[in-house]
Protein backbone atom coordinates (compact mmCIF):
# COMPACT_ATOMS: atom_id res chain seq x y z
CA UNK A 1 0.00 0.00 0.00
CA UNK A 2 1.11 3.56 -0.41
CA UNK A 3 1.70 5.75 2.59
CA UNK A 4 -1.19 7.98 1.50
CA UNK A 5 -3.69 5.19 2.25
CA UNK A 6 -2.95 5.65 5.96
CA UNK A 7 -4.60 8.17 8.25
CA UNK A 8 -2.35 11.23 8.31
CA UNK A 9 -1.71 11.01 12.06
CA UNK A 10 -0.41 7.43 11.66
CA UNK A 11 1.56 8.26 8.52
CA UNK A 12 3.26 11.08 10.42
CA UNK A 13 4.61 8.58 12.97
CA UNK A 14 6.42 6.39 10.45
CA UNK A 15 10.17 6.65 10.90
CA UNK A 16 9.84 8.82 14.00
CA UNK A 17 11.49 7.83 17.30
CA UNK A 18 9.04 7.53 20.20
CA UNK A 19 9.14 6.55 23.87
CA UNK A 20 12.86 7.17 24.31
CA UNK A 21 13.93 5.59 27.57
CA UNK A 22 17.08 5.01 29.63
CA UNK A 23 17.71 1.63 31.21
CA UNK A 24 17.16 1.55 34.96
CA UNK A 25 20.64 0.21 35.71
CA UNK A 26 24.01 -0.24 34.00
CA UNK A 27 24.92 -3.47 32.25
CA UNK A 28 26.44 -5.74 34.86
CA UNK A 29 28.33 -9.00 34.87
CA UNK A 30 26.18 -10.85 37.38
CA UNK A 31 23.33 -10.97 34.91
CA UNK A 32 25.70 -12.01 32.14
CA UNK A 33 26.91 -14.98 34.16
CA UNK A 34 23.39 -15.86 35.35
CA UNK A 35 22.12 -15.77 31.77
CA UNK A 36 25.00 -17.97 30.61
CA UNK A 37 24.28 -20.38 33.47
CA UNK A 38 20.59 -20.54 32.55
CA UNK A 39 21.47 -22.11 29.19
CA UNK A 40 24.77 -23.71 30.20
CA UNK A 41 26.67 -21.43 27.82
CA UNK A 42 30.37 -22.13 28.30
CA UNK A 43 31.55 -19.73 25.59
CA UNK A 44 34.93 -18.59 27.04
CA UNK A 45 34.24 -15.05 25.85
CA UNK A 46 32.00 -14.67 28.90
CA UNK A 47 34.13 -16.54 31.45
CA UNK A 48 37.77 -15.90 30.49
CA UNK A 49 38.78 -12.24 30.82
CA UNK A 50 42.10 -12.75 29.05
CA UNK A 51 40.36 -14.26 26.04
CA UNK A 52 37.70 -11.53 26.08
CA UNK A 53 40.46 -8.92 26.11
CA UNK A 54 42.10 -10.58 23.14
CA UNK A 55 39.02 -11.15 20.99
CA UNK A 56 36.53 -8.46 21.98
CA UNK A 57 38.62 -5.81 23.74
CA UNK A 58 37.24 -6.79 27.15
CA UNK A 59 34.18 -8.51 28.63
CA UNK A 60 30.91 -8.34 26.72
CA UNK A 61 27.33 -9.47 27.31
CA UNK A 62 25.69 -12.31 25.43
CA UNK A 63 24.25 -10.52 22.38
CA UNK A 64 20.82 -12.08 22.91
CA UNK A 65 20.55 -10.33 26.29
CA UNK A 66 19.78 -7.07 24.47
CA UNK A 67 16.26 -6.43 25.75
CA UNK A 68 17.04 -7.63 29.29
CA UNK A 69 18.59 -4.27 30.22
CA UNK A 70 15.22 -2.56 29.79
CA UNK A 71 13.03 -4.86 31.81
CA UNK A 72 12.15 -2.84 34.91
CA UNK A 73 12.73 -4.02 38.43
CA UNK A 74 9.79 -5.99 39.83
CA UNK A 75 9.42 -3.17 42.35
CA UNK A 76 11.03 0.23 42.72
CA UNK A 77 10.45 2.92 45.37
CA UNK A 78 8.01 5.63 44.32
CA UNK A 79 7.26 4.13 40.94
CA UNK A 80 3.74 4.76 39.69
CA UNK A 81 3.52 3.66 36.10
CA UNK A 82 5.71 3.29 33.06
CA UNK A 83 5.44 2.92 29.32
CA UNK A 84 4.77 -0.63 28.25
CA UNK A 85 7.45 -2.34 26.23
CA UNK A 86 6.31 -1.92 22.63
CA UNK A 87 3.95 0.92 23.57
CA UNK A 88 3.66 1.79 19.86
CA UNK A 89 2.03 -1.60 19.30
CA UNK A 90 -0.62 -0.84 21.91
CA UNK A 91 -1.09 2.68 20.51
CA UNK A 92 -1.85 1.21 17.07
CA UNK A 93 -4.32 -1.30 18.48
CA UNK A 94 -6.18 1.57 20.10
CA UNK A 95 -5.89 3.92 17.10
CA UNK A 96 -7.40 1.34 14.72
CA UNK A 97 -9.79 -0.08 17.33
CA UNK A 98 -8.38 -3.60 16.99
CA UNK A 99 -8.91 -5.46 20.26
CA UNK A 100 -6.73 -8.49 19.50
CA UNK A 101 -3.14 -8.74 18.39
CA UNK A 102 -0.41 -11.30 17.85
CA UNK A 103 3.28 -10.96 17.15
CA UNK A 104 4.19 -12.97 14.07
CA UNK A 105 7.95 -12.44 13.72
CA UNK A 106 10.79 -11.13 15.82
CA UNK A 107 14.17 -10.25 14.31
CA UNK A 108 17.18 -9.04 16.29
CA UNK A 109 20.14 -7.42 14.54
CA UNK A 110 23.32 -7.02 16.55
CA UNK A 111 25.79 -4.16 16.13
CA UNK A 112 28.41 -2.95 18.67
CA UNK A 113 28.88 -5.37 21.58
CA UNK A 114 27.22 -4.48 24.89
CA UNK A 115 29.77 -4.22 27.73
CA UNK A 116 29.57 -4.21 31.52
CA UNK A 117 29.08 -0.64 32.71
CA UNK A 118 27.24 0.48 29.55
CA UNK A 119 24.17 2.65 30.09
CA UNK A 120 21.79 1.80 27.27
CA UNK A 121 19.04 3.91 25.78
CA UNK A 122 16.12 2.75 23.67
CA UNK A 123 13.43 4.17 21.43
CA UNK A 124 10.60 2.71 19.36
CA UNK A 125 10.20 3.49 15.65
CA UNK A 126 7.12 2.58 13.61
CA UNK A 127 8.41 1.34 10.25
CA UNK A 128 5.24 0.43 8.36
CA UNK A 129 1.52 -0.23 8.61
CA UNK A 130 -0.29 -2.34 6.02
CA UNK A 131 -3.64 -1.81 4.38
CA UNK A 132 -6.50 -3.75 6.02
CA UNK A 133 -6.07 -7.50 5.53
CA UNK A 134 -8.15 -10.55 6.40
CA UNK A 135 -6.49 -13.68 7.78
CA UNK A 136 -7.89 -16.75 9.51
CA UNK A 137 -7.68 -14.77 12.77
CA UNK A 138 -9.80 -11.88 11.58
CA UNK A 139 -9.49 -8.55 9.80
CA UNK A 140 -6.91 -6.01 10.76
CA UNK A 141 -3.53 -4.56 9.88
CA UNK A 142 0.08 -5.70 10.03
CA UNK A 143 2.69 -3.32 11.37
CA UNK A 144 6.44 -3.40 11.87
CA UNK A 145 7.99 -1.70 14.89
CA UNK A 146 11.74 -1.37 15.46
CA UNK A 147 13.15 -1.04 18.96
CA UNK A 148 16.57 0.58 18.72
CA UNK A 149 19.20 0.26 21.43
CA UNK A 150 22.21 2.58 21.76
CA UNK A 151 25.00 2.85 24.31
CA UNK A 152 26.07 5.94 26.26
CA UNK A 153 28.27 7.02 23.33
CA UNK A 154 25.32 6.92 20.94
CA UNK A 155 26.61 3.81 19.19
CA UNK A 156 23.94 1.49 17.86
CA UNK A 157 24.16 -1.83 19.71
CA UNK A 158 21.09 -3.54 18.28
CA UNK A 159 17.66 -3.33 16.71
CA UNK A 160 14.76 -5.62 17.54
CA UNK A 161 12.13 -5.65 14.84
CA UNK A 162 8.63 -6.91 15.65
CA UNK A 163 5.90 -7.69 13.14
CA UNK A 164 2.48 -7.46 14.76
CA UNK A 165 -1.01 -8.15 13.45
CA UNK A 166 -3.78 -6.23 15.17
CA UNK A 167 -7.21 -7.59 14.33
CA UNK A 168 -10.87 -7.94 15.16
CA UNK A 169 -12.13 -11.53 15.38
CA UNK A 170 -14.62 -12.82 12.89
CA UNK A 171 -14.76 -9.63 10.82
CA UNK A 172 -14.62 -10.03 7.08
Amino acid sequence: MTATDLPTDVEALIGVGQYEQDGEFPVERGYIWTSCASVENGNPLFWDDDLAAKLTGGPIAMPTMLSLWFRPHHWAPGRTEQALPLQVHFDLKERFDLPEAVMTDNTIVFYEPVRPGDRLRTRQVLQSVSAPKTTKLGTGRFWVIDVEYRNQDGELVGIESYTGFGYRRGAS
Binding site: V39, E40, N41, N43, M62, P63, T64, M65
Partner: peptide, 14 residues
Protein backbone atom coordinates in the same frame (compact mmCIF):
# COMPACT_ATOMS: atom_id res chain seq x y z
CA UNK B 1 11.15 -16.01 24.41
CA UNK B 2 14.37 -14.25 25.57
CA UNK B 3 15.55 -17.46 27.20
CA UNK B 4 14.86 -19.37 24.00
CA UNK B 5 17.00 -16.78 22.19
CA UNK B 6 19.78 -17.47 24.69
CA UNK B 7 19.48 -21.21 24.03
CA UNK B 8 19.80 -20.56 20.26
CA UNK B 9 22.84 -18.36 20.84
CA UNK B 10 24.51 -21.01 23.00
CA UNK B 11 23.74 -23.68 20.39
CA UNK B 12 25.27 -21.65 17.56
CA UNK B 13 28.42 -20.57 19.39
CA UNK B 14 29.01 -24.08 20.77
Amino acid sequence: TPNQAAWFERYLTD
